[in-house]
Each structure stands twice: as structure tokens, then as C-alpha cells.
Simulated assay, not measured.
Amino acid sequence: MSATNATAASMPGDWHDFFALTKPRVMSLVIFTGLCGLLAAPGNINPVLGFTAILCIALAAGGAAALNMWWEADLDRVMKRTAGRPIPTGRLQRRDARDFGLLLAGASVITMGLAIGWLAAAILALSVFYYAVIYTMWLKPRTPQNIVIGGGAGAFPPLIGWVAVTGDVTAMPILLFAIIFFWTPPHFWALALFVQTDYAKAGIPMMPVVRGERSTRRQILGYAVLLAPIALAPFLIGAAGPLYGVVAAVLSLGFVALAWPVATRSAASGDAMRPEKRLFGFSIVYLFVLFAALVADAYISRGGFLA
């Protein structure tokens, strides 16, 4: 470590560095899907309690992200995409990230239990454990299926939001979990295709690195096809209305259509990775619009959330 980094590491980071530990971009999606689960759930919740539930989901996600950065600090130093994070640059010490993550996660679970209910709190605690331990510590460094199984970590927020309102787990929140679970592999592998050299350099067995581009591309298409009926399922079982059904059908067709050129394109086709970048960008829009349609559909069917 250079003298500059050593000096920086000896000083506590400012709030920007601690905020960066929470992975704000990822957290925004977590907050959004959690809020959608809460708003789409049947029944009502006091606005203050609803805000508390979403705050707890956000804090838990931030805590899990901080624990991820604490554990993977050495890998982050190697990868170009992550080398500018607070720990690799020496702006924060690893133990600060660990303690910050544990504080956020612990406080969020306890607050959720006391304010909302212990079932929601238990699922929230499971989501932190799933991401920080099962995915980060166990799956990610060991298997190319890491993102497939680990996708469950990001699928919990709408389930937790739903349970915060209803107090139980039914078919609909499980479907919302499944949508994100099956969305994660094609979303993440599209990114992994154009940053695979980073993963290879760090020794992380992501699918393109271990199984190669051809296998990864085929699996992206396969998961996109599997995602379509799962995304339509809330409409098919009568838990969502026609607005959601139409949006889910159109978005899913678009997802498959964009996955097709990714699956059929060879590595020799050029290195611009335009189809992969288009699919990655669309996948983010896909999830935001799909869950927004779910909330809009619920609003219309009830005549308002306070009706």
C-alpha cells in the first residue's frame, strides 16, 4: 500500500464513502420492487408503517452490500470495474465496512420485527444472509451457477413488501419472487459477457469465464424464454388484471427478441457487444416497467389505494 493509501486508510471515511458501500444503484431497484410489492398487496397499511417497512428493506440491502464489499475487498482491487470503491482505494478500512454492514442489517431486522411483524423481519434477515453469506462467501467464488442460485437474494424485496401488508405468504408474492429470480441470470450474464475479462482476472468463476460465451449466450435465451410465462402468471391466475397482462406480454416478447441476437451471435462477430449492452439496458427497464404496471393495475382495480 502506498503512503497516500496508508494515510487514507487510517482516517475514517466521510459519509459519501459509507453511502457508496450500500451500492445505491442496486438499492434503488430493491426499494422500487419492495415498494411495488407493498402497494400491490391486498389490504392497507398505515403510511408511516409502510415507510418504515421500505426503509428497513433499504437499510438491509445496504448492509448486505457493505458486507459484500468487506468480504470481496481483495477481489475489488483487481477488477477495473470495482477498483474505485472505498476499500480498494484506501478511503475506508475493511473493518469499518464490516461493522457498518452489521449495524445496518441488524437495526433493519429488529426495527422491521418491532414495527411491522416478525415474519417480515425473518424474511428480511434471510435475504441479508442469502446475499452476504450464501452468495458472496459461498457460491460466487465456487460455481458458475453462482448468479442463478444467488439471484434469490435480489428477489426478496417484493415478497417482504407484500408480507408487511398481509402478514402471510401466498402464491402471488412467491410469483413476484420467481420473476426476479428468473430475470437475474439473463440480466447479469449480459453484463458478464462484456466485463468477463475482469472476472477472469479476479478468478471469479462467472459463466462466460468457466463455460464460455457460447454456453452463456444459449442460457441467456433459455432464461428469457422461461421468464415469459412466469411474468404472465399473475395475470393467468387472476391475481393481476389485463393492464398488467398486456404489459407483461409485450415486455417479455421484447426480452426474448433482444436475447435472440445475443444467443446467436458468436464472439468473432466483433467486440462492440452492442446486442449484449442493449439486452442489459432493456432488462433494467423491463423490471421497472413490469412492477410499475403491477402497481398501476392494482390501483385501477381497487379504485385507489385508500379505497
Rank of each mutant, 00 (worst) to 15 (best):
M1C: 09
A3G: 03
A3I: 11
A3K: 06
T7H: 08
F19N: 11
K23Y: 02
P24G: 10
M27N: 05
S28V: 07
L29E: 04
V30L: 12
V30Y: 02
V30I: 14
I31T: 13
G37C: 06
A40Q: 10
A41D: 05
G43Y: 06
N44I: 15
L49Q: 15
G50C: 07
T52C: 11
I57D: 05
G63Q: 01
A64T: 00
L67G: 04
M69Y: 00
W70C: 06
E72G: 10
E72L: 10
D74L: 14
D76E: 12
R77L: 15
M79V: 11
M79K: 02
A83E: 15
A83P: 08
R85C: 12
P86S: 04
P88Y: 09
G90D: 03
R91S: 09
R94W: 01
G101P: 00
L102V: 13
S108T: 12
S108V: 12
V109A: 12
M112P: 04
G113I: 09
G113A: 09
A115S: 14
A120G: 04
A125Y: 03
V128Q: 04
V133S: 08
Y135Q: 03
T136M: 08
R142Q: 07
T143P: 05
P144N: 09
N146P: 06
I149C: 13
G152D: 13
G152M: 06
A153R: 02
A155M: 02
L159S: 05
L159P: 03
L159I: 07
A164G: 10
V165Q: 09
V165T: 10
V169C: 08
T170W: 03
P173Y: 09
L175W: 03
L176R: 01
A178T: 10
A178R: 03
F182D: 10
H187N: 05
F188T: 04
A190F: 02
L191T: 11
A192E: 07
A192C: 11
A192Q: 08
L193D: 09
F194R: 02
V195H: 02
T197C: 05
A202G: 10
G203Y: 09
G203F: 08
G203D: 14
I204V: 15
M207Q: 06
V209G: 11
G212M: 12
G212F: 07
S215H: 11
T216A: 09
T216S: 08
R217Y: 06
R218K: 15
Q219Y: 13
I220L: 11
P234Q: 13
F235T: 11
F235A: 14
G238T: 08
A240Q: 07
G241N: 12
Y244K: 08
V246F: 12
V247D: 05
A249D: 00
L253C: 10
L253P: 01
L253D: 06
F255T: 01
V256M: 07
A257E: 05
A259C: 05
A259H: 02
W260A: 09
P261R: 04
A263C: 12
S266G: 15
A268G: 09
A268D: 15
A268H: 10
G270S: 07
D271C: 05
P275G: 14
K277A: 15
L279V: 01
V285G: 12
L287A: 01
L287K: 00
F291N: 00
L294R: 00
A296P: 02
A298S: 15
A298W: 03
G303K: 10
F305V: 07
